[in-house]
Simulated scan of single mutants.
Amino acid sequence: MSTLRVTVEHLTIHDHPNADALELAQVGLYRAVVAKGAFRTGDVALYIPEQAVLPQELVAELGLTGKLAGSAANRVKAIRLRGELSQGIVCRPRALDGTDLARAAEEGTDFGAQLGIVKWVPPVPVSMSGEVEPAPELLPWIDIEHLKRYPEVFAEGEPVAVTEKVHGTACCLTYSASSGRVQVTSKGLGAQRLALVEDPGNLYWRAVRAHGVAEVAAELAAELGAARIGVFGEVYGDGVQDLGYGADSRRGEPAYAAFDVAVEVGGRVRWLAPQELATAVEGRLPLVPTLFTGPYDARRVMELADGRETVSGRAVHLREGVVVRPLGERYSPVVGGRAVAKVVSGAYLTRKGGTEYE
């Protein structure tokens, strides 16, 4: 998941091709359906992104009672309105009356807490939960921002790798060379510096044991002279999420695909660049599919996010999206961290009966 920030943004307004009374307000590369005439290009307004949970008072004020997602009808979710994908809500709530919105946009002020807007936390199935223990030495996974929200992360023509985003649950393993200790966690628990106590019934531990992830981490630590190694992979299959890729984790071992490795050497943590990662784990662990390597082209990346998945080799269902990384690992001032971004397909966002366990 990406971080949740509720900010004021500059708008670009486009015609809605299928509705005379509606328009499209563009924020970054996102577009949200708005009433015709409500905004003009150059205006500033609050942008509430997907996965935001709104207080009922704000839902009512915006005229969205009964129109949002979730059991309480208060969660922002991508939808199609008259055939156009609408991602997020563009508005000017009364609570911001008197606020200098232009200045707030310039300063990037986050109004989430003031408005009582929080990030949606998906439920956790029993197979993904378990007893936990403190793990301050974990190498946790990071939030990946959406390229549509931050289109300046990559420069046109910059060498990048585009990999398929697999719909599963992130398994984060940390191996400490000095002690040989292996700690396994999920993305959500890892962010809290909590590890899952080993349990043969736990999904993450089942995947780690089935694919020898800990052994690979130990080998990499020795080869790279690392004090700690973090191996990050997606655990997937039927019984994990609604997109199973033809694998069944309920009757067999969970499917697994590595997507990143972090290495600590001399007290400094770095991420393996895409080609270095491929070389390091080739023949040792399955990897998420690489769809493209070459000069960055925003339009091509958006096109790659859609279509059918390539994980199963049989294109059994739609693609969740893609993840973009530079071929040379670097810092991005745009997101204030590692230069990496994702694009999620519209078909995935608007599918019926989807699950989003973390």
Rank of each mutant, 00 (worst) to 15 (best):
H16A: 06
A19T: 07
A21P: 08
E23K: 04
L24R: 02
A25L: 01
V27W: 03
V27Y: 00
A32F: 09
A35F: 02
A35T: 00
K36M: 12
A38F: 10
T41Q: 10
T41G: 12
V44A: 03
A45H: 04
L46I: 01
E50K: 13
E50H: 08
V53S: 12
L62H: 09
L64I: 08
G66K: 06
L68E: 02
S71A: 11
A73K: 05
R75A: 02
R75K: 13
R75W: 02
V76Q: 08
Q87Y: 02
V90W: 05
V90P: 13
R92D: 06
P93Q: 12
R94I: 09
A95V: 15
L96F: 07
D97A: 03
G98I: 10
L101G: 05
R103P: 01
A104N: 03
E107L: 12
G108R: 12
G108H: 09
I117V: 06
V118P: 10
W120S: 12
V121N: 11
P122E: 04
M128F: 06
S129H: 11
G130W: 05
P134T: 04
P136D: 01
P136E: 07
W141A: 15
I142Y: 01
E145M: 02
Y150L: 14
E152T: 15
F154K: 11
F154L: 12
V160F: 03
V162F: 12
T163S: 10
H167I: 13
T169A: 15
T169C: 15
T169K: 05
L173C: 03
T174W: 14
A177H: 00
S178A: 15
V182P: 00
Q183A: 03
T185Y: 02
S186D: 15
K187R: 15
Q192M: 14
A195G: 07
D199G: 04
D199R: 01
P200E: 15
P200V: 15
N202D: 12
L203A: 14
L203K: 07
Y204T: 11
A210D: 08
H211P: 04
V216M: 11
G225D: 03
I229S: 12
I229Y: 09
G233C: 02
Y236N: 00
D238T: 14
G239L: 08
Q241W: 09
D242G: 00
D242W: 10
L243G: 02
G244R: 10
R251D: 03
A255E: 04
F259D: 08
A262Q: 00
V263P: 00
G266A: 04
A273W: 11
P274L: 14
L277I: 10
A278D: 15
L285K: 01
P286T: 14
P286C: 12
L287W: 05
L287A: 05
P289V: 07
F292R: 13
R300T: 13
V301I: 13
E303G: 12
L304G: 04
E309D: 07
G313T: 11
H317R: 06
L318W: 07
V323F: 01
V323R: 02
R325M: 09
L327W: 07
G328E: 14
G328W: 07
V334W: 03
G336C: 08
G337K: 01
G337H: 05
A339T: 06
A341K: 14
L349H: 05
R351Y: 05
K352I: 15
G354W: 13
E356W: 15
